[in-house]
Design a protein around this nucleic acid. Structure first.
Length: 361
DNA sequence: AAGTCGGGGAT
DNA sequence: ATCCCAGACTT
């Protein structure tokens, strides 16, 4: 879609629905916009407003700020978090006043040399307070553009971010940059929200790639979760001569609490020995099946299913609260986690492994 | 490229 | 609980 139409649609929407009551929008001098932009970094508008009012009442211009003690600045910042923002703001004010400039440099490169001002904040100050055609790329715009152009990948990734900057640059108009800049942020905050975006109310709906693919909720790509730990276990698919399979009820607390499962034996343990000692069963152990990975929110569980045939017993495994011999594939028993149920069905259908073992032996 | 800084709002 | 917020800076 051509940039003119993009910005036109965004501006038309802004003229009707945009936020225009924000404190920093009245008399948007570079200093007032600067302070607002710093406060708004990683902080929501409604949180910032009271802080901004107090701050501007005490430090109405850059010189007052530079003359103040850092402690007092931090005091007015207390509760906002990210206190390096306040230190940088104060430090930058002092730098400028020491240069006898007493005002923000309205130049992209020079602006970014000041502490606390990166590319996006510099762009916002210049676009909002001096009408320069400079793109911004805050969280709102990232989300909006990632969806609009269906940009794949987590925006924290440098390559993805570069793509988004390119898009931001492309769509930033020459005329009405200040309104446009406010408009894209409003659109991101009010319509193209992280969860439950209001696509029906979006002026870009007809040209939104994510919407066309029905992937609004999947974009932007969420931050990759850190590698989950892997736990391993053997599950013993014990079968008696009559075809019944042994199930064990899991402890009421913990993973799959109270559900039926297979007897579990640690990976480093020998299954035959374990059966003898823990179950009192003489068994033949078949070749393990392929590992099944079951994923939870906080770890992966790698299950090694081990087919085992009972050949005799020294003391019978009692049926009751804890163990049952299950033989009818269609019989309804208590709750069973999905991967366990699938394993059970496979085991009941599998050919007796005694033959296989006999051949091997 | 990944980690750090933070309190608060929304779901 | 988890995610996210008008990001920038350091390692």
């Amino acid at each position: 879609m051509n940039p003119i139409e993009f910005s036109q649609r965004v501006l038309d929407w802004f003229d009707i629905h945009g936020r225009k009551q924000l404190p920093w929008k009245e008399n948007p001098t570079p200093y007032r916009v600067w302070v607002s932009e710093i406060m708004l970094q990683q902080t929501q508008v409604t949180t910032v407003i009271p802080y901004y009012e107090r701050f501007m009442a005490r430090f109405p211009d850059i010189r007052v700020l530079a003359d103040a003690e850092l402690d007092e600045v931090l005091q007015l910042w207390a509760g906002l978090g990210y206190y390096a923002r306040a230190r940088h703001l104060h430090q930058a004010a002092r730098i400028l006043c020491a240069r006898a400039e007493n005002q923000l440099p309205l130049d992209m490169a020079v602006l970014q040399e000041l502490p606390g001002i990166g590319r996006s904040t510099a762009g916002a100050i210049l676009a909002l307070a001096s009408g320069q055609r400079q793109p911004i790329l805050d969280g709102n715009v990232k989300r909006l553009l990632a969806r609009f152009a269906a940009v794949e990948g987590w925006p924290g990734q440098s390559r993805v971010q570069a793509t988004l900057w390119e898009l931001a640059e492309r769509y930033t108009p020459n005329a009405r940059v200040a309104d446009y800049t406010q408009a894209v942020m409003d659109l991101g905050a009010m319509i193209c929200k992280p969860h439950q975006p209001c696509c029906e109310a979006c002026p870009l709906i007809e040209h939104c790639a994510a919407y066309a693919q029905g992937r609004q909720v999947d974009l932007p790509t969420p931050k990759p979760r850190r590698e989950l730990p892997v736990r391993t276990t053997q599950m013993l698919l014990l079968r008696a001569e009559n075809g019944a399979v042994l199930l064990e009820r899991r402890p009421p607390i913990g993973l799959w609490g109270g559900l039926w499962s297979f007897p579990e034996c640690p990976m480093n343990a020998d299954a035959a020995t374990w059966c003898q000692e823990r179950l009192g069963l003489m068994v033949m152990v078949g070749p393990p099946w392929e590992v099944i990975r079951h994923s939870f929110s906080h770890f992966h569980l790698d299950i090694t299913p081990v087919p085992v045939t009972v050949t005799g017993y020294s003391q019978a495994v009692m049926e009751g609260e804890r163990f049952i011999w299950h033989r009818d594939r269609h019989a309804v028993i208590g709750g069973m986690a999905t991967p366990i149920h699938r394993l059970l069905v496979r085991r009941l259908k599998s050919a007796p492994d005694t033959q296989q073992l006999t051949i091997d032996l």
